[in-house]
Write a protein that binds this DNA or RNA. Structure first.
Lengths: 223, 223
DNA sequence: CTAATATCTGACCGTGCGGTCAACATCTCC
DNA sequence: GGAGATGTTGACCGCACGGTCAGATATTAG
């Protein structure tokens, strides 16, 4: 490994401290196996030994490439967020109205969950089970909060444009995220869950809940 | 303890195997301390030693009254559900319409969470962290499912009475429960959460999402 | 080929868990 | 007041965890 190497000179492939081919491959493999293990047996039982077994290496290899289990878990979360962003963002940018953007938000988020089931299950496992030495301190490195504030802004912009009615944007965002985030446990426990049907119903629910008047005429309530 | 006593004859207080005063008090105390411990330091760190310390007894006492940690946890869940049912059911029965019942369902559920914060936090901790020896098998002894199916029936009866529009009742119930069940973690992490405002917004959201037509005239869409 | 470096293993350690147990303390009733 | 049931303790056990480490093995440079 290069992290503590005394000199900058080492591998042949390049002059600076670019990770070797093996290092990059191993890191990716271990992260992938960690995700599978966590999604498969749960965070508590996803021990280093379990992850190592799935990667067909010894436990020491994991500690060789990562600074302990905490570091590995953080890299796992990083990796999942990165892929999620790559999946969702392009789908949001090309929507003409805020209303369409909200629909795309819900559907692309759920579509990502369907496509990368175990990634999301692993994330939920980590958020639920990854405690620091003291009490309640969880993880959530701005990830959840970031998604939440992004959604709040989206809703508020819809209110300003007049597309949405006058609701509590924070509460609405919370309900939307809750309706999406409770999906992974359901997917884990019920293989027959109608995920596409659920996405469709959710879009309808939050369209009805957010829109400014049905098809009626009055533009603003006085009192 | 009475569970393995060879003869049916024992305590003086009564002729049958009614638990003694001490036994009933200790069981209740230990369950209460377990709830506090789980809500306070999380399921993973709520060890028998931790619970025993809070009850000011030795670890052995817990194993004397409960058949291991699993048994204790099950009794904790039982206890919380019992109290929740006692709190909510009376509030639901006296509602005139299905729509009012749904509103009462949401508001009483959230009110219970606000009143017995640590009970609900403990429940969520248990559901998230209580794994059996093998993989994913969680807990949920019909509790969640029961609440869910009860809600589904409520929604369907509203559709039959014409109060509600024609939505997927399972999906709607899931979204409602998700919007409620995501509350405890938020309450645990954010002491300033506006819980009453959230309850109010939720009622509005799912009123708009479920009701049959806004205030318009057409009673049924042809296509 | 050889030396240096990168990679990898398996044995080992300390810790903290759930659970057991023999012994001790307290209560209860005749 | 003493026998037996009930309640309680603290020492102890086996286990599995995350992590360490000396050294074996592969890879590369010169």
């Amino acid at each position: 490994m290069r992290s503590t190497s005394p000199t900058g000179v080492q591998a042949s492939s390049s002059s600076h401290d670019e990770p070797s081919f093996i290092e990059a491959a191993r890191r990716a493999q271990i992260i992938e196996c960690a995700i599978e293990a966590i999604a498969d047996v749960g965070f508590a039982r996803a021990t280093l030994a379990e992850i190592a077994k799935r990667a067909r290496v010894s436990k020491g290899v994991i500690l060789y490439y990562f600074d302990g289990k905490d570091d590995l878990i953080r890299k796992v979360v990083e990796s999942v967020y990165l892929i999620a962003a790559e999946f969702m963002l392009p789908r949001l940018e090309q929507q003409p109205t805020v209303r369409d953007t909200l629909h795309a938000y819900i559907e692309s988020n759920i579509a990502y969950m369907a496509e990368r089931r175990i990634y999301i299950i692993a994330l939920v496992e980590i958020f639920g089970g990854f405690r620091d030495r003291d009490g309640v301190s969880k993880f959530r490195p701005g990830g959840h909060d970031y998604m939440n504030s992004h959604l709040v802004e989206l809703l508020q912009s819809g209110q300003q444009s007049g597309e949405f009615r006058d609701f509590n944007a924070g509460a609405m965002a919370f309900a939307i995220r809750a309706s999406i985030d409770m999906l992974p446990p359901a997917l884990a426990n019920d293989a027959d869950f109608d995920i596409k049907g659920y996405a469709k119903e959710l879009v309808t629910v939050f369209d009805l809940a957010t829109r400014n008047q049905a098809g009626a005429k009055r533009k603003k309530v006085s009192s």
